[in-house]
Simulated assay, not measured.
Amino acid sequence: MERDSFLYKARRTGQVVAHKFIPDTVMSKLYFKIVLGKKLNLDNPQTFNEKLQWCKLFYYPRSKRVVTCTDKYAVRKYIKKKGYGDTLTPLLGAWDRAEDIEWDKLPDQFVLKCNHGCAYNIVVSDKKTLDKKTTEKQLNTWLKEDFGAFNIELHYSKIKPHKIICEEFLGANITDYKFFCFNGEPKFIYVSNDLIHDRQAQIGFFYLDGSKMPLTRDDYTDIPEVKLPSFFNEMLDMAKDLSKDFPFVRVDFFLANDTYYFAELTFTPSAAMMPFNPDKYDLEWGKMLDISELEEKYGKKK
Results as ranks from 00 to 15, higher is better:
residue 175 T to H: 12
residue 175 T to E: 12
residue 179 F to H: 00
residue 179 F to R: 07
residue 180 F to Y: 10
residue 182 F to G: 02
residue 183 N to F: 13
residue 184 G to F: 03
residue 184 G to Y: 02
residue 184 G to N: 06
residue 184 G to D: 12
residue 187 K to T: 12
residue 187 K to N: 04
residue 187 K to Q: 13
residue 187 K to M: 02
residue 187 K to H: 04
residue 188 F to L: 10
residue 189 I to A: 03
residue 191 V to D: 04
residue 191 V to P: 01
residue 191 V to R: 04
residue 191 V to M: 10
residue 191 V to C: 09
residue 193 N to D: 14
residue 193 N to K: 12
residue 193 N to T: 12
residue 195 L to Q: 06
residue 196 I to G: 13
residue 196 I to P: 07
residue 198 D to Y: 15
residue 200 Q to G: 06
residue 201 A to W: 10
residue 204 G to M: 02
residue 204 G to P: 12
residue 206 F to M: 05
residue 206 F to R: 06
residue 206 F to N: 00
residue 206 F to K: 03
residue 207 Y to I: 07
residue 209 D to S: 01
residue 210 G to M: 13
residue 210 G to Q: 03
residue 212 K to H: 14
residue 212 K to C: 15
residue 214 P to I: 14
residue 216 T to C: 03
residue 217 R to S: 11
residue 217 R to G: 05
residue 218 D to F: 05
residue 218 D to A: 15
residue 219 D to G: 00
residue 220 Y to F: 04
residue 225 E to P: 14
residue 225 E to F: 14
residue 225 E to W: 05
residue 226 V to T: 04
residue 229 P to L: 08
residue 229 P to G: 09
residue 230 S to A: 03
residue 230 S to Q: 09
residue 232 F to T: 05
residue 233 N to H: 11
residue 235 M to Q: 05
residue 236 L to R: 06
residue 238 M to T: 04
residue 241 D to L: 02
residue 241 D to M: 11
residue 241 D to Q: 15
residue 242 L to E: 00
residue 244 K to E: 15
residue 244 K to H: 02
residue 246 F to D: 00
residue 247 P to T: 05
residue 247 P to L: 09
residue 247 P to C: 03
residue 248 F to D: 11
residue 249 V to Y: 01
residue 250 R to K: 13
residue 253 F to A: 12
residue 253 F to G: 01
residue 254 F to S: 02
residue 255 L to I: 07
residue 256 A to Q: 01
residue 256 A to F: 01
residue 257 N to L: 03
residue 257 N to P: 13
residue 259 T to Y: 02
residue 260 Y to G: 00
residue 262 F to E: 02
residue 263 A to Q: 07
residue 267 F to I: 10
residue 269 P to Q: 05
residue 271 A to H: 06
residue 272 A to S: 10
residue 272 A to D: 00
residue 274 M to E: 14
residue 276 F to M: 04
residue 278 P to Q: 05
residue 279 D to K: 15
residue 279 D to A: 15
residue 280 K to N: 10
residue 281 Y to I: 13
residue 282 D to S: 13
residue 283 L to D: 10
residue 285 W to S: 08
residue 285 W to M: 11
residue 285 W to P: 06
residue 286 G to C: 13
residue 286 G to Q: 09
residue 289 L to M: 06
residue 290 D to F: 11
residue 293 E to S: 11
residue 296 E to Y: 04
residue 297 K to C: 01
